[in-house]
Design a protein around this nucleic acid. Sequence first.
DNA 1: CTCTCTGCAAATGCTTTGCAAACTC
DNA 2: GAGTTTGCAAAGCATTTGCAGAGAG
Lengths: 144, 144
Amino acid sequence: MAPSEPSSADDLVAGLRRAGLRVTAPRRAVCAVLASAGEEHLTAADVAGRTGAAVDLSTVYRTLDALEGLGMVQHVHLGHGAGAYHVGPSEDHHHLVCEECGRTVDVALETLQRAIEGVTAPLGFVPDAAHFAIVGRCAACAGG
Amino acid sequence: MAPSEPSSADDLVAGLRRAGLRVTAPRRAVCAVLASAGEEHLTAADVAGRTGAAVDLSTVYRTLDALEGLGMVQHVHLGHGAGAYHVGPSEDHHHLVCEECGRTVDVALETLQRAIEGVTAPLGFVPDAAHFAIVGRCAACAGG
DNA sequence: CTCTCTGCAAATGCTTTGCAAACTC
DNA sequence: GAGTTTGCAAAGCATTTGCAGAGAG
């Protein structure tokens, strides 16, 4: 399946507008940064930085929060550092986070999803795929 | 299935001693709390609280860190809140953490393990089972 | 007695919040 | 013009660290 294209800046902006939220310069900037980052994981500070420091960090958090509420952005907490945000609808892809280099790889996978549900369903547990990360060591750090 | 018994307070203390670390009253207290919590996930503050506030938070962190270094305690970061610590060696069981009530259920599962490896192996990624948690909503919170 | 550990307090890093001014619709 | 947003600054958590005194071996 062709993974649905990550939302473009315009899509994000349109989403804000559709939700009745106002489209302001700072929000446009944040949307542009997110869209250009693709699937890359950015911290709030990264986003703020890429807007050319034109947007206050608190505003970035508020905007990210709004977008997340619309389901157009996801955020995860990996290890100790700051939370990571990235565009994308609630797709079925999971994050593999390297404990050593901190790099993140994501995999779109049904098998895993099905296996997880096979475990959680009997327990009545509803897994949140978006918030799901597998920690370990990536090829580079593990292999040597 | 009888999951291998979590370490007892004595085991933890013995571990410290074996590592050449000193066995002090605060450390004993932390070990006792961890042992009595079983597989429950505790934040550093929880641990401090259960010692009867007899142990300073910074000391709790230092002790937890020491025990983690010995591989007798694991810690994970779930969602936004504080990190969660719990006793236990690197077993092959995973944690289902409820975002709403914070309760944790653990499942010892091969299917899941195999599915995960099926995904990560091709990428050369080495998953760390102990650090692995599935976030979602438990039956009580999801079902209503 | 020597060296580690503890408690206190201050510092740090990430995120949130109060509020008046700026801006969107 | 009405009501949402912004930026600034300060507050709020979780966690770490410096240091002198207390305690373990």
